[in-house]
Design a protein around this nucleic acid. Structure first.
Lengths: 227, 227
DNA sequence: GGTAAAACAGGACGATCATCCTGTTTGACA
DNA sequence: TGTCAAACAGGATGATCGTCCTGTTTTACC
């Protein structure tokens, strides 16, 4: 226990806290202005720190960008998509919940800054191999979570006639593209339209009542096999 | 007619040609490295010109960017999507043709640089109002072409149970998002999966034989009204 | 052929970019 | 309490950013 009666502290060393502030500031700035559009000076000013601290925690801008991807963007996808899908009773409910949550948040914010993963993906996928790998991993986890839920629904006999992996990719693609248009039009309408379309498709894939499917049994689904 | 027997020409004034070279170089560079990622020096070097010429044709980088959007990006969307959709017998065929053409071109190129409209949209939509307006206009024309074709199919009784405008937005969103994933994974697979999903959905919306629909007639479509 | 504007060349310009360097403060441990 | 590495401050650094300025060449028109 050091003498804590020192009159006034000039500085408080808080490496983890400052690191978080830097990553958060970068996350926000990248989301608003893009990776190349946001300058280092702006980032350290927003985080309330200086060049020395930034260099200590992140030697290069690339290191900071990777931290944003790993810590914030991956977490955002987890929070907005993976968790709702996993928690929902069905894939259809989970997808609807994810869309609804994001739309509600956008309306509350009053502006559309776009999907953080897509924003960085388009700007950095071809720019650097490390970024590309990291981004691809997040996309993969995202698709996997949806596909897994779809597989559960299929095995439970709740839906029929679709391939989990292909449809999961389709869902992510529809959402991503809708968010891009939402960003351009600064409106949630594209997201609402796409959510409705996906809901219709999943409704059509639903089985009538749903007696647990005889998984290995006869190959004839009860309703409209989608070829 | 001037004396054309001058020994050697040092320069050939070709304002329109140089302008095209500048716009083309910028289009390529923006596609590969993004708007902010591509520098002015790089652009004028690629176009084989100097600062004076660039300043003469485009006073600012923004002016050059807008020219790229109007001249090249809009044309790319027109060529890859609007024209195939208009030329096709049905919307389903047009959408399939657009996907197929783009996938074939990507395989020929051996790399995926992404949709030029999406690339610029995500980077510039929130950066500048002029860019946003221009990008939104291209998206609108794109969606309108698909919606128009869907409306024709509906009126011809070829399909039923979907809203043209909403579904057109859905198609553009699916493609855009799929292209983003294709860029990240450097693979055409996401595009192929999404094309197949859209084909399935449009197949399900197809009417059996297709006697020209009694447009204003009874409100009960022959097969599975999608609510 | 003379003239003026358009079409270019080529470099200067200040600002900002990301990174690095030196020096000071803090905190853990002996 | 003394020591030392980690954690920061703050500015220097060269490179590159986009823009602008001066001067020369070409072209259209009289």
């Amino acid at each position: 226990m050091t003498t804590r009666s020192v009159p006034a502290r000039k500085r408080t060393n808080d490496p983890e806290g400052l690191r978080q502030r830097l990553v958060e500031a970068a996350h926000v700035a990248f989301q608003l202005k893009g990776y190349h559009g946001a300058g280092i000076h702006e980032l350290k000013h927003a985080a309330g720190t200086t060049g020395g601290a930034l260099a200590h925690h992140f030697p290069t801008k690339k290191a900071l960008g990777l931290a944003v991807l790993r810590d914030r963007v991956a977490a955002a996808v987890e929070r907005a998509w993976i968790a709702p899908v996993r928690a929902a009773p069905t894939a259809a409910a989970g997808i609807a919940a994810a869309f609804a949550g994001i739309i509600a948040e956008l309306k509350r914010a009053g502006e559309v800054t776009g999907c953080p993963l897509n924003n960085l993906a388009i700007e950095l996928a071809r720019h650097d191999a490390a970024f590309r790998t990291e981004i691809e991993a997040v996309f993969l986890r995202w698709r996997r979570a949806i596909a897994e839920k779809l597989r559960q629904d299929l095995e439970a006999g709740l839906i029929a006639g679709l391939q989990p992996d292909a449809f999961a990719t389709f869902v992510v693609a529809s959402y991503s593209g809708a968010m891009t248009m939402a960003k351009v039009s600064q409106s949630t309408v594209p997201l609402e339209l796409c959510a409705a379309e996906l809901a219709k498709i999943l409704e059509d894939a639903r089985r009538p009542a749903g007696p647990p499917a005889d998984t290995a049994g006869r190959g004839s689904p009860q309703r409209r096999p989608r070829r």
